[in-house]
Simulated assay, not measured.
Amino acid sequence: MSNAVPSPTELLPEALRFTSPAPLVDIGANLTHESFTQDLEPTLTRARDAGVETLIITGTDIEHARQAVALSRQHDGLYATAGVHPHDASGWTPQVAAAMAELYRDPLVVAVGECGLDFNRNFSTPQQQEHAFEAQLALAADNGLPLFVHERDAGARMSSILRAWRDDVRQVVVHCFTADRETLHRYLDLDLHIGLTGWICDERRGHHLRELVADIPGNRLMVETDCPYLLPRNLPAKLKGRRHEPALLPWIVREIAHWRDESEAQLAASSSATAREFFALDTDRSQPGGGSD
């Protein structure tokens, strides 16, 4: 019996070892999730082997934002966001605001969020969510950072709030977009960016997106896994443990490209260029004013 340790690539079935035709940016990876604790290094190796060269690590509260920054310091090609998710909006305090403001001074923090509105679960009340969201809009404006937004069943209210702030906030991406055509066009009319995930691979819930994705201008579209969540349901092989990871992003790109009637290479290149510009990844943010227009 061999005692050889399997390589990181061998931990994925061969049918799931995709390679992007152009370098990719995963704009939403929850790598501080406990499921990555034991194999973060192999996960990053698999991502790079797949062509996913840059990852934005999502910070959904103070603890996870700090962890995201720490990971970004340890690994090239990683950046962090910092915000309070609407589920946790009831915990927004002046102390939380001050801690977030401190995080935004770090050049590795490239966006405010994940923040927004979730009227689907309402783990925090709508009033608490709106209060925390507007506070984070103000922080984004004050720090010249883009906004990384979560929205579920709150499209009309989200659009109304963002319309009032649009001149003050540099850029906004609605991450993991899953809503309808009307909501999509509200966001596009506000000149927002749209993040798409493996939701489009879900024949139960995401089939409506297939008819919408061609409406999104190429310079407004970015891609993400939202791992370890939202594992694509139409993968060509089963994945042990069913944990999503960045190495599978090329499969999502393939699916989106199909429904947009464009090549994988074209979508990979355009989405990455859009993400690099949106998050100012090629800007020296260590210099005063480096992260803002």
Rank of each mutant, 00 (worst) to 15 (best):
residue 32 T to L: 01
residue 48 R to K: 14
residue 251 W to F: 13
residue 176 C to E: 04
residue 153 D to C: 04
residue 44 L to H: 00
residue 268 A to T: 11
residue 78 L to Q: 00
residue 245 E to H: 02
residue 100 M to Y: 09
residue 153 D to N: 12
residue 4 A to F: 10
residue 291 G to F: 05
residue 231 L to A: 03
residue 154 A to P: 13
residue 84 V to Q: 05
residue 117 L to M: 15
residue 14 E to N: 11
residue 15 A to F: 05
residue 47 A to W: 11
residue 288 P to H: 08
residue 67 Q to E: 03
residue 13 P to R: 15
residue 212 L to Y: 11
residue 145 L to D: 11
residue 31 L to M: 02
residue 158 M to Q: 00
residue 51 G to I: 14
residue 162 L to P: 03
residue 11 L to M: 05
residue 66 R to F: 08
residue 24 L to F: 10
residue 52 V to D: 01
residue 2 S to G: 13
residue 36 F to T: 08
residue 150 H to E: 12
residue 157 R to W: 04
residue 7 S to P: 03
residue 48 R to S: 10
residue 159 S to R: 13
residue 56 I to E: 01
residue 205 R to Q: 06
residue 215 D to H: 02
residue 42 P to I: 01
residue 208 H to S: 01
residue 288 P to N: 14
residue 56 I to G: 09
residue 72 S to T: 03
residue 280 A to V: 14
residue 204 R to D: 06
residue 186 R to A: 04
residue 203 E to A: 05
residue 165 W to A: 12
residue 121 R to E: 00
residue 215 D to G: 09
residue 37 T to R: 08
residue 287 Q to D: 10
residue 204 R to M: 05
residue 8 P to E: 05
residue 169 V to I: 15
residue 129 Q to I: 02
residue 289 G to H: 15
residue 75 H to K: 05
residue 17 R to H: 09
residue 263 S to Q: 12
residue 89 A to S: 14
residue 79 Y to H: 13
residue 6 P to Y: 11
residue 40 L to K: 13
residue 16 L to W: 04
residue 5 V to E: 15
residue 92 W to N: 09
residue 112 V to M: 08
residue 105 R to V: 13
residue 4 A to Q: 09
residue 165 W to P: 02
residue 12 L to E: 05
residue 22 A to E: 12
residue 222 M to S: 06
residue 81 T to N: 02
residue 139 L to Y: 08
residue 276 R to T: 10
residue 103 L to N: 05
residue 45 T to N: 14
residue 152 R to D: 04
residue 101 A to M: 14
residue 213 V to G: 01
residue 189 D to E: 10
residue 119 F to W: 02
residue 232 P to M: 08
residue 9 T to Q: 15
residue 7 S to A: 12
residue 275 A to D: 07
residue 276 R to Y: 09
residue 120 N to V: 05
residue 58 T to M: 09
residue 176 C to I: 07
residue 172 V to M: 07
residue 40 L to S: 04
residue 67 Q to W: 07
residue 278 F to M: 06
residue 201 C to F: 10
residue 141 A to G: 09
residue 97 A to I: 02
residue 107 P to M: 00
residue 95 Q to M: 03
residue 217 P to L: 13
residue 92 W to S: 00
residue 226 D to K: 11
residue 287 Q to F: 04
residue 18 F to K: 00
residue 99 A to F: 07
residue 62 I to K: 03
residue 238 K to E: 11
residue 94 P to F: 06
residue 174 V to S: 06
residue 237 A to E: 08
residue 291 G to V: 07
residue 67 Q to N: 13
residue 65 A to C: 08
residue 48 R to F: 12
residue 33 H to S: 10
residue 115 C to W: 12
residue 148 F to G: 03
residue 158 M to R: 09
residue 197 T to Q: 08
residue 25 V to M: 12
residue 244 H to I: 08
residue 232 P to A: 01
